[in-house]
């Protein structure tokens, strides 16, 4: 067993875990943060994306023990003071989800994308979301939602490419 101290969605806590515990299982089963989903066995679907020290990672392909001392944000930590994050609001407004299974990972990946490219072109949005699979929407509305959130977050910025 290994000891793990980390900050998840602003709360610092210490846990004992088996080294083989994947971050996604730790979040879901030890912290009951079930917004982070598991959609595959092959690190391809992106349903499990969270932020580890500010950058997006697939929580199914990181060990919990590797996060000792780290800061993690999950979909549950994105809304501030009861207000939806602009990405959450735009996914709702633009109908960017149907079953919703891919949505938490999609939004966490898009949030990382918008940190790096505050006003991405549609091509850059599609490139940035390559690690996230959606079986329902056909992606069109997702791209629209990310574009709309970018405009809300950075009203002055001009579209850029990759």
């Amino acid at each position: 067993m290994a000891t793990l101290t980390l900050t998840v969605n602003g709360t610092l806590s210490t846990h004992t875990v088996e080294p083989r515990t994947l971050l996604v299982h730790f979040l879901r089963e030890h912290l009951n943060l079930t917004g982070t989903h598991i959609g595959c066995d092959t690190s391809q679907c992106g349903a499990c994306v969270v932020h580890l020290n500010g950058v997006s990672v697939k929580a199914c392909t990181v060990l919990a023990v590797q996060c000792d001392g780290a800061t993690i944000t999950t979909i549950e930590g994105l809304a501030q003071n009861g207000e939806l994050h602009p990405l959450q609001a735009s996914f709702r407004a633009e109908h960017a989800l149907q079953c919703g299974f891919c949505t938490p990972g999609m939004i966490m990946a898009a949030a990382d994308l918008l940190q790096q490219h505050p006003h991405p072109s549609d091509e850059a949005i599609r490139h940035g979301l390559q690690g996230n699979l959606c079986r329902c929407t056909g992606y069109e509305h997702i791209v629209r939602a990310v574009r709309s959130a970018a405009a809300t977050l950075n009203p002055q910025a001009k579209p850029e490419s990759l």
Partner: peptide, 12 residues
């Protein structure tokens, strides 16, 4: 590098 995997694969 831009052709490898996806954003999360490239982050790790």
């Amino acid at each position: 590098v831009q052709l490898i995997g996806d954003l999360q694969v490239r982050n790790r």
